[in-house]
Protein backbone atom coordinates (compact mmCIF):
# COMPACT_ATOMS: atom_id res chain seq x y z
CA UNK A 1 0.00 0.00 0.00
CA UNK A 2 1.53 3.27 -1.10
CA UNK A 3 1.62 6.07 1.43
CA UNK A 4 -1.01 8.79 0.95
CA UNK A 5 -0.17 12.49 1.20
CA UNK A 6 -1.73 15.77 0.10
CA UNK A 7 -1.21 17.35 -3.29
CA UNK A 8 0.53 20.31 -1.59
CA UNK A 9 2.81 17.89 0.28
CA UNK A 10 3.61 16.14 -2.99
CA UNK A 11 4.82 19.43 -4.48
CA UNK A 12 6.85 20.17 -1.34
CA UNK A 13 8.43 16.71 -1.36
CA UNK A 14 9.24 16.96 -5.07
CA UNK A 15 10.86 20.36 -4.54
CA UNK A 16 12.82 19.10 -1.54
CA UNK A 17 14.09 16.00 -3.35
CA UNK A 18 15.02 17.97 -6.47
CA UNK A 19 16.99 20.45 -4.34
CA UNK A 20 18.65 17.61 -2.50
CA UNK A 21 19.80 15.84 -5.65
CA UNK A 22 20.84 18.94 -7.59
CA UNK A 23 22.56 21.93 -5.92
CA UNK A 24 21.74 24.07 -8.95
CA UNK A 25 18.02 24.06 -8.10
CA UNK A 26 16.72 27.05 -6.14
CA UNK A 27 13.31 28.49 -5.21
CA UNK A 28 12.27 32.10 -5.60
CA UNK A 29 8.93 33.86 -5.36
CA UNK A 30 6.77 36.25 -3.42
CA UNK A 31 5.85 34.49 -0.18
CA UNK A 32 7.94 31.33 -0.52
CA UNK A 33 9.47 32.04 2.91
CA UNK A 34 6.15 33.15 4.39
CA UNK A 35 4.81 31.13 7.38
CA UNK A 36 2.02 29.87 5.15
CA UNK A 37 4.59 28.71 2.59
CA UNK A 38 2.51 29.00 -0.60
CA UNK A 39 -0.33 26.76 0.61
CA UNK A 40 2.25 24.60 2.41
CA UNK A 41 4.28 23.82 -0.71
CA UNK A 42 7.48 25.57 0.40
CA UNK A 43 7.32 25.03 4.17
CA UNK A 44 10.67 24.29 5.80
CA UNK A 45 12.74 24.67 2.64
CA UNK A 46 14.45 27.89 3.75
CA UNK A 47 15.43 26.33 7.07
CA UNK A 48 16.86 23.29 5.30
CA UNK A 49 18.60 24.90 2.33
CA UNK A 50 19.27 28.45 3.50
CA UNK A 51 18.42 31.89 2.19
CA UNK A 52 20.66 31.55 -0.85
CA UNK A 53 18.51 28.77 -2.30
CA UNK A 54 15.08 29.75 -1.00
CA UNK A 55 14.32 33.43 -1.29
CA UNK A 56 11.48 35.89 -1.26
CA UNK A 57 11.54 38.53 -3.96
CA UNK A 58 10.33 42.08 -4.52
CA UNK A 59 7.00 42.63 -6.26
CA UNK A 60 8.88 43.18 -9.54
CA UNK A 61 7.70 40.04 -11.25
CA UNK A 62 8.96 40.76 -14.75
CA UNK A 63 12.41 41.88 -13.60
CA UNK A 64 12.77 38.91 -11.26
CA UNK A 65 11.76 36.49 -14.02
CA UNK A 66 14.53 38.08 -16.09
CA UNK A 67 16.94 37.50 -13.19
CA UNK A 68 15.80 33.86 -12.99
CA UNK A 69 16.32 33.42 -16.74
CA UNK A 70 19.76 35.01 -16.44
CA UNK A 71 20.65 32.62 -13.66
CA UNK A 72 19.89 29.65 -15.93
CA UNK A 73 22.46 30.96 -18.38
CA UNK A 74 25.15 30.53 -15.73
CA UNK A 75 23.96 27.04 -14.85
CA UNK A 76 21.25 27.40 -12.22
CA UNK A 77 17.77 25.81 -12.23
CA UNK A 78 15.23 28.22 -10.73
CA UNK A 79 11.71 27.38 -9.58
CA UNK A 80 9.77 30.64 -9.56
CA UNK A 81 6.39 30.72 -7.85
CA UNK A 82 3.47 33.11 -8.16
CA UNK A 83 0.66 32.83 -5.64
CA UNK A 84 -1.87 33.67 -8.33
CA UNK A 85 -1.60 33.24 -12.08
CA UNK A 86 -2.87 36.79 -12.34
CA UNK A 87 0.40 38.15 -10.90
CA UNK A 88 2.42 36.35 -13.57
CA UNK A 89 0.82 38.41 -16.31
CA UNK A 90 3.47 41.02 -15.56
CA UNK A 91 6.12 38.50 -16.55
CA UNK A 92 4.80 37.56 -19.98
CA UNK A 93 7.50 39.60 -21.69
CA UNK A 94 10.31 37.61 -20.08
CA UNK A 95 8.50 34.29 -20.47
CA UNK A 96 7.36 34.73 -24.06
CA UNK A 97 10.09 36.88 -25.57
CA UNK A 98 13.05 35.32 -23.78
CA UNK A 99 12.57 32.05 -21.91
CA UNK A 100 10.41 30.25 -24.49
CA UNK A 101 12.66 31.17 -27.43
CA UNK A 102 16.13 30.92 -25.95
CA UNK A 103 16.82 27.39 -27.08
CA UNK A 104 15.58 28.17 -30.60
CA UNK A 105 17.43 31.48 -31.01
CA UNK A 106 20.67 30.70 -29.20
CA UNK A 107 20.81 26.93 -29.43
CA UNK A 108 24.53 26.68 -28.79
CA UNK A 109 24.10 28.20 -25.34
CA UNK A 110 21.39 25.68 -24.38
CA UNK A 111 17.87 26.30 -23.20
CA UNK A 112 16.39 27.98 -20.17
CA UNK A 113 15.66 25.31 -17.52
CA UNK A 114 13.06 27.31 -15.65
CA UNK A 115 9.97 26.07 -13.79
CA UNK A 116 7.19 28.59 -13.25
CA UNK A 117 4.51 27.60 -10.73
CA UNK A 118 1.20 29.31 -11.33
CA UNK A 119 -1.77 28.87 -9.00
CA UNK A 120 -5.27 29.03 -10.39
CA UNK A 121 -8.74 28.38 -9.06
CA UNK A 122 -11.67 29.92 -7.35
CA UNK A 123 -11.98 30.97 -3.75
CA UNK A 124 -14.14 33.07 -1.54
CA UNK A 125 -13.70 36.78 -2.28
CA UNK A 126 -10.90 36.28 -4.81
CA UNK A 127 -12.70 38.04 -7.61
CA UNK A 128 -11.76 38.89 -11.19
CA UNK A 129 -8.07 39.69 -10.55
CA UNK A 130 -7.18 36.68 -8.40
CA UNK A 131 -8.99 33.65 -9.78
CA UNK A 132 -8.61 33.59 -13.53
CA UNK A 133 -7.90 30.37 -15.41
CA UNK A 134 -5.75 31.48 -18.31
CA UNK A 135 -3.78 28.34 -19.03
CA UNK A 136 -4.81 28.37 -22.69
CA UNK A 137 -2.97 31.67 -23.05
CA UNK A 138 0.31 29.98 -22.11
CA UNK A 139 -0.51 27.03 -24.33
CA UNK A 140 -0.40 29.32 -27.36
CA UNK A 141 3.34 29.98 -27.02
CA UNK A 142 5.79 27.77 -28.94
CA UNK A 143 8.64 26.71 -26.69
CA UNK A 144 6.62 26.50 -23.49
CA UNK A 145 5.52 23.25 -21.94
CA UNK A 146 2.32 23.58 -19.91
CA UNK A 147 1.35 20.96 -17.34
CA UNK A 148 -1.74 20.70 -15.15
CA UNK A 149 -1.58 17.69 -12.82
CA UNK A 150 -4.82 16.63 -11.15
CA UNK A 151 -3.59 14.07 -8.60
CA UNK A 152 -0.92 14.13 -5.88
CA UNK A 153 0.91 11.34 -7.73
CA UNK A 154 1.10 13.32 -10.96
CA UNK A 155 1.88 16.55 -9.12
CA UNK A 156 5.11 15.05 -7.77
CA UNK A 157 6.09 13.09 -10.87
CA UNK A 158 5.41 15.92 -13.30
CA UNK A 159 7.07 18.47 -11.01
CA UNK A 160 10.29 16.44 -10.99
CA UNK A 161 10.10 16.09 -14.78
CA UNK A 162 9.61 19.86 -15.05
CA UNK A 163 12.62 20.65 -12.86
CA UNK A 164 14.81 18.25 -14.86
CA UNK A 165 13.63 19.62 -18.22
CA UNK A 166 16.12 21.70 -20.21
CA UNK A 167 13.50 24.25 -21.22
CA UNK A 168 10.81 26.35 -19.51
CA UNK A 169 7.86 24.48 -18.03
CA UNK A 170 4.70 26.15 -16.71
CA UNK A 171 3.24 24.20 -13.79
CA UNK A 172 -0.45 24.99 -13.13
CA UNK A 173 -1.93 23.98 -9.81
CA UNK A 174 -5.57 24.53 -8.87
CA UNK A 175 -5.99 25.80 -5.33
CA UNK A 176 -8.69 23.23 -4.59
CA UNK A 177 -6.33 20.40 -5.37
CA UNK A 178 -3.80 21.34 -2.67
CA UNK A 179 -5.75 19.52 0.05
CA UNK A 180 -6.71 16.35 -1.78
CA UNK A 181 -5.03 13.11 -0.68
CA UNK A 182 -3.67 10.33 -2.82
CA UNK A 183 -0.95 7.68 -3.06
CA UNK A 184 2.51 9.13 -3.69
CA UNK A 185 5.72 7.05 -3.73
CA UNK A 186 8.35 8.30 -1.30
CA UNK A 187 11.24 8.03 -3.73
CA UNK A 188 12.04 10.49 -6.52
CA UNK A 189 10.18 9.56 -9.73
CA UNK A 190 9.09 11.20 -12.94
CA UNK A 191 5.89 11.28 -14.94
CA UNK A 192 6.39 12.00 -18.65
CA UNK A 193 5.48 15.50 -19.83
CA UNK A 194 3.16 15.30 -22.85
CA UNK A 195 1.20 12.19 -21.88
CA UNK A 196 -2.48 12.09 -21.00
CA UNK A 197 -3.98 9.34 -18.86
CA UNK A 198 -7.29 7.51 -18.99
CA UNK A 199 -8.51 7.98 -15.41
CA UNK A 200 -11.56 5.82 -15.84
CA UNK A 201 -12.58 3.61 -18.73
CA UNK A 202 -16.00 3.72 -20.33
CA UNK A 203 -17.62 2.88 -23.63
CA UNK A 204 -20.44 5.42 -24.08
CA UNK A 205 -19.00 8.93 -23.93
CA UNK A 206 -15.56 10.52 -23.51
CA UNK A 207 -14.98 13.35 -21.04
CA UNK A 208 -11.68 15.19 -21.57
CA UNK A 209 -10.66 17.25 -18.55
CA UNK A 210 -7.79 19.12 -16.92
CA UNK A 211 -6.74 19.83 -13.34
CA UNK A 212 -9.56 20.15 -10.78
CA UNK A 213 -12.20 19.35 -13.40
CA UNK A 214 -10.75 15.85 -13.71
CA UNK A 215 -12.09 15.19 -10.21
CA UNK A 216 -15.45 16.74 -11.07
CA UNK A 217 -15.59 14.64 -14.23
CA UNK A 218 -14.85 11.51 -12.22
CA UNK A 219 -17.78 12.38 -9.93
CA UNK A 220 -19.89 12.97 -13.05
CA UNK A 221 -18.93 9.56 -14.42
CA UNK A 222 -20.09 7.99 -11.15
CA UNK A 223 -23.45 9.79 -11.40
CA UNK A 224 -23.78 8.70 -15.05
CA UNK A 225 -22.94 5.12 -14.11
CA UNK A 226 -25.94 5.03 -11.76
CA UNK A 227 -28.08 5.43 -14.88
CA UNK A 228 -26.13 2.81 -16.80
CA UNK A 229 -23.99 5.24 -18.83
CA UNK A 230 -20.30 4.40 -18.94
CA UNK A 231 -18.24 7.57 -19.34
CA UNK A 232 -14.52 7.48 -20.03
CA UNK A 233 -12.54 10.23 -18.28
CA UNK A 234 -9.29 11.39 -19.89
CA UNK A 235 -6.96 13.43 -17.67
CA UNK A 236 -5.01 15.57 -20.13
CA UNK A 237 -2.21 16.26 -17.58
CA UNK A 238 -0.18 18.23 -20.16
CA UNK A 239 -1.96 20.80 -22.31
CA UNK A 240 1.24 21.54 -24.26
CA UNK A 241 2.48 19.35 -25.87
CA UNK A 242 -0.96 17.76 -26.12
CA UNK A 243 -1.31 13.97 -26.18
CA UNK A 244 -3.66 13.87 -29.16
CA UNK A 245 -3.21 10.11 -29.59
CA UNK A 246 -4.71 9.40 -26.18
CA UNK A 247 -7.64 11.78 -26.69
CA UNK A 248 -8.37 10.57 -30.22
CA UNK A 249 -8.05 6.96 -29.13
CA UNK A 250 -10.73 7.45 -26.52
CA UNK A 251 -13.02 9.44 -28.81
CA UNK A 252 -12.59 6.91 -31.59
CA UNK A 253 -13.79 4.27 -29.18
CA UNK A 254 -16.77 6.33 -28.01
CA UNK A 255 -17.23 8.72 -30.95
CA UNK A 256 -18.54 11.58 -28.87
CA UNK A 257 -16.26 13.80 -26.80
CA UNK A 258 -17.58 15.97 -24.04
CA UNK A 259 -14.68 18.30 -23.57
CA UNK A 260 -13.86 20.07 -20.38
CA UNK A 261 -11.72 23.17 -20.70
Amino acid sequence: MTREIRYSEAILEATDQCMEQDPRVYVIGLGVTDPKGIFGTTLGLEAKYGAKRVMDMPASENAMTGVAIGSTLVGLHPIITHQRVDFALLTLDQIINNASKWHYMFGASGGVPLVIRLIIGRGWGQGPQHSQSIQALFGHIPGLKVIMPATPHDAKGLFVAAVEDDNPVIFFEHRWLHNIHGPVPEELYREPIGRARVMKEGKDVTIVATSHMVLESTHASEALARDGIEAEVVDVRTIKPLDTACILGSVEKNRAPDCRR
Partner: peptide, 11 residues
Protein backbone atom coordinates in the same frame (compact mmCIF):
# COMPACT_ATOMS: atom_id res chain seq x y z
CA UNK B 1 -11.29 30.20 -27.08
CA UNK B 2 -10.19 28.05 -24.19
CA UNK B 3 -8.31 24.80 -24.14
CA UNK B 4 -11.48 22.82 -24.91
CA UNK B 5 -11.69 24.54 -28.29
CA UNK B 6 -8.33 23.06 -29.25
CA UNK B 7 -9.43 19.58 -28.22
CA UNK B 8 -12.63 19.83 -30.24
CA UNK B 9 -10.72 21.20 -33.24
CA UNK B 10 -8.40 18.20 -33.23
CA UNK B 11 -11.32 15.80 -32.84
Amino acid sequence: MGFGAEVLAIV
